[in-house]
Design a protein around this nucleic acid. Structure first.
Length: 467
RNA sequence: GGUGGGGUGGCGGAGCGGUUGAACGCGCCGGUCUUGAAAACCGGUAUGGCCUUCGGGUCAUCGUGGGUUCGAAUCCCACCCCCACCGCCA
């Protein structure tokens, strides 16, 4: 949610921001409605003020008169009734006009509200303008010792790369067929060392973020109220991406809930409607949770394998901090650093992308994606083998107070006034997607997969999968 | 599945038709006292919108939405949510 005052002060900033993000929200219309609304409200307030004043002045008097009226003799009646009528005339008139104004306000309210929810957070000025993810800009890349970005896999490693699809089949790590039988397309069942590796990477991620970086381990609900979805900014935009547990199809109380697509919803929802003590900031939380995504509109995209699936698990980090841009930026950089450290420990080549305005989505002022190198993706080379491609594995967002405004999450500033917090979030690790680069990058000539050092403690010391 | 109880300020908790935006307690802020602190005492302390000559003015808010009334935290209706007990289950 944007600040309406800020919108009125500088509409152009929001209009430009919406355009840069490819949003077609009608901001001039919102401003027009807002102005109408305020005019109506001002008039109504004035009348209410008068109503209150009159109520205080003549109310008790009126009560007394009515009491007399009940006991009055026939001769007294007409005079008393006249007095009552006189006293009631103005309040009655006021009441009617206030109701009329109420109706006028209610007539524009829904549109006013909806438009507000659709105005996106304007991208920061240092975010490059672009229409789609194609125009994201690479900031830097990293690869372990010995990896040559200019050479293909064969040259780097001396043997042909298997894709993760081939690897999981040969090593018996995933059962797609039966997964699909149970749950339909984009479903799977991790099996054997596939499941163990999945658990290991999640445990490693959770330990990394909590033990080394002081984030507080927290479990979150993944079945949540609509309010949590709207509060975190996923609704109304992301409805078609979300599974809904429908009250109509499964009668009973508390069934009108949604499955979350990220632990961010549960973590950020924890402190909704709270006024935090400034000393308690920043809040740094991490969770591991199952994430559900319908992937509507992605039909035909990444249909094979573990890349784009309806259900996965993710270790997520969020930060809630003071409303200070510099501090916010520091946390952002720190969160990205945590992920780089993790990927480097796993010896996975990656690059950082500065997302362009068109790729940001509703709530972000700035977003950095991290993509891991996946040898088995991309178009085919001369030998008919995949030439390799980067695939998004992480996404770090900086939201200013956009999300906390919706969540009504504030803290008390030094002057005693309440201030909306800033919020940020980032993936720590999402699996099974991360298994793709892990399996592909660490495959060996004999068809086995070397388990990266940091994961071995979580696999009872096992060093290799297969063989 | 069955039956009750309840949603009031940062928190706890009164109020059940009219100067109640709301007693009282806790917390927090300021002051007195003290070498300093604690304690004690005194004073202050809700949130949001709109307007503002920046002194303030004004309206809304006691779960949400309607209704009754000159007037609603208080009465009526609907909805949402929470809790407790029994049963069942992990």
């Amino acid at each position: 949610m944007i600040d309406l005052k800020a919108l009125r002060d500088d509409p152009q900033r929001f209009i430009d921001g919406a355009r840069a993000k490819g949003s077609d929200v009608d901001i001039p219309r919102l401003l027009e409605l807002d102005e109408q609304r305020r005019a109506l409200l001002a008039e109504q307030e004035q009348l209410r003020s008068e109503q209150k004043r009159i109520g205080k002045e003549v109310g008790p008097q009126l009560g007394k008169l009515k009491g007399q009226l009940k006991k009055a003799s026939v001769d007294e009646l007409p005079a008393l009734e006249a007095q009552v009528g006189e006293l009631e005339a103005r309040p009655a008139e006021l009441k009617q006009r206030i109701q009329q104004l109420d109706e006028s306000i209610e007539a524009i309210d829904p549109e006013w509200r909806t438009l507000q929810l659709h105005v996106p957070q304007p991208p920061d000025l240092d975010v490059p303008v672009g229409a789609t993810a194609e125009e994201n800009i690479e900031i830097r890349r990293w690869a372990p010792e010995g990896w040559d970005w200019d050479a293909d896999w064969q040259t780097n490693r001396g043997f042909a790369a298997r894709t993760h699809l081939e690897l999981v089949d040969e090593l018996d790590l995933v059962d797609f067929e039966r997964g699909v039988k149970v749950a339909g397309s984009r479903s799977y069942a991790l099996t054997g060392d596939g499941m163990r590796l999945h658990q290991a990477i999640l445990a490693f991620g959770m330990n990394h973020i909590t033990r080394r970086h002081g984030f507080r381990a927290t479990s979150v609900p993944v079945i949540v109220r609509e309010q949590a979805m709207t509060g975190t900014g996923f609704f109304p935009g992301g409805r078609e991406q979300t599974y809904h547990i429908d009250a109509d199809s499964t009668p009973g109380p508390g069934q009108d809930l949604y499955l979350t697509g990220t632990g961010e919803v549960g973590l950020m929802g924890l402190h909704a409607d709270e006024i935090l003590d400034a000393d308690s900031l920043p809040l740094k939380y991490a969770t591991v949770s199952t994430c559900f995504r319908r992937e509507a509109g992605a039909a035909g995209k990444d249909t094979a394998g573990l890349y784009r699936i309806h259900q996965f698990d993710k270790v997520e980090q969020v930060v809630v901090c003071r409303a200070d841009e510099a501090e916010s930026r520091e946390h952002h950089a720190a969160m990205i650093g945590i992920v780089e450290e993790l990927l480097q420990a796993l010896e996975l080549p990656y690059r950082l992308l500065q997302c362009c305005t068109g790729d940001l989505g509703m709530k972000n002022a700035d977003m950095i994606d991290i993509e891991c190198w996946i040898p088995g993706r991309g178009g085919e080379d001369d030998a008919g083998r995949p030439s390799g491609e980067f695939g998004e594995t992480h996404s770090a967002s900086r939201l200013y107070d956009f999300q906390c405004r919706r969540l009504n999450l504030r803290y008390r500033g030094e002057d005693g006034k309440t201030v909306f917090c800033h919020s940020l979030n980032n993936t720590v690790v999402a699996s099974p997607r991360i298994l793709i680069p892990i399996l592909e990058m660490h495959q060996q000539a004999d068809g086995t997969v070397r388990i990266p050092e940091p994961l071995r403690p979580y696999m009872d010391g096992q060093e290799v999968i297969g063989g």
